[in-house]
Amino acid sequence: MRITGAYYLVLAALVFGIGAVGLLVRRNVLVMFMCVELMLNAVTLTFVAFSRMLDDVGGQAIVFFVLVVAAAEVAVGLAIIVAIFRRREGATADDVHLLKG
């Protein structure tokens, strides 16, 4: 049985969907953040699959930039979460619906 590019695309779509549903359903800010990471990983998987299907290394180079942006996003996002937790208890996203403390 040959695993073609379509398998990877369907798998990535499923993972992206799970991440999106988790982002919408969960209230814990950290878990929501992890769901964003899942969605980013699904997209990188798609990039690599297309890179192979089109025989173009550019798709793999783009994944590097996705990784860099994801690392920067995690650093800043977790710093924001830590700053919010200093002011209030609990990790529920609905408690933080104003930009001011």
Partner: peptide, 11 residues
């Protein structure tokens, strides 16, 4: 792109 195949020695 072709949904069916990889190029060999790629990436």
């Amino acid at each position: 792109g072709s949904l069916t195949g990889p190029a060999s020695g790629f990436g």
